[in-house]
């Protein structure tokens, strides 16, 4: 498999008038094409910073980030970013919301417009194209947000705790759905989460980070034996508990 994302000795410091904060320190890892990788770590350890570095909206203090072999310098159309909330614009209809990325990149044309329409139809939002975000349920909004990301045809999806604003049932259902969509569209996905169960059930690999400044503590290859490999059914797998407990211990949570 080919490497699609590479982090090489990446460090990142934030500066403010209160002083300097080291968010991440000397992190290196590779992500392969088609993988679903989760990054877990203690809260506030700099997980989201890693996604911002891969997406190119932040520049590392030292080290390099490569996407598809090219050094990251500013945002790239290969990378799509899903934030914690859906952030649909309430003054735009659903179809206009999903076209935002293309509009920003000046790529609004008939082909792309048809592609977005097809995505909306395929993923159950066909009847809601002309609706406004406040008329949709939390799960539907999250799906619209995913289509907005997919519309720009990224190869890599960065998911920054994209379900954390949803209630538990919706969260399970929508993470299953979105996982299926990501697999169907054959995207590489990097998920940042503090939900260990979510990470174990969805991922091929899990990167565990230390407290701030974040370093890579360990990397787990997840091999679950389940008939249909989807997040919800994989929670039934016998190995699920083992991975869960291992990572729980690694995180070394003290309240």
């Amino acid at each position: 498999m080919e490497k699609i994302v590479e982090l090489k000795n990446v460090s990142m410091n934030y500066h403010s008038s209160n002083g300097e904060t080291q968010a991440i320190q000397d992190i290196s890892f590779d992500i392969y094409n088609g993988e679903f990788v989760s990054i877990v770590g203690p809260s506030g350890c700099g997980k989201s910073t890693i996604l911002s570095l891969i997406s190119g909206i932040l520049k590392p203090t030292s080290g390099n980030v490569f996407v598809k072999g090219a050094k990251v310098d500013g945002t790239s159309e290969n990378v799509g970013y899903m934030l914690q909330k859906d952030h649909l614009f309430e003054w735009r209809s659903i179809i206009k919301n999903t076209l935002i990325g293309l509009e920003v990149q000046n790529k609004l044309n008939k082909d792309n417009w048809e592609y977005v329409n097809q995505l909306l139809d395929e993923y159950g939002l066909g009847e809601f194209k002309e609706h406004y975000p406040n008329q949709l349920s939390g799960g539907m909004r999250q799906r619209a947000a995913l289509i907005r990301t997919l519309a720009a045809k990224p190869e890599i999806l960065l998911l920054d705790e994209p379900f954390s604003a949803l209630d538990y049932q919706t969260r399970l259902a929508i993470s299953e759905e979105i996982w299926l969509i990501i697999k169907k569209e054959k995207k590489t996905a990097i998920l940042v989460t503090h939900d260990i169960a979510e990470a174990v059930s969805a991922s091929d690999r899990i990167i565990v980070l230390t407290n701030r400044p974040a370093q890579v503590k360990s990397i787990y290859n997840i091999n679950l034996t389940c008939d249909t490999k989807t997040p919800i059914s994989c929670r039934e797998a016998p190995e699920f508990r083992y991975y869960f407990n291992q990572i729980w211990k690694e995180l070394d949570v003290h309240v």
């Binding site: 909206i57 945002t75 159309e77 952030h87 614009f89 935002i100 920003v104």
Partner: peptide
């Protein structure tokens, strides 16, 4: 909303 601005920036706005 800073996050709405961030969202547009992730698309390269």
């Amino acid at each position: 909303d800073e996050d709405k601005i961030k969202l547009l920036k992730t698309f390269g706005a």
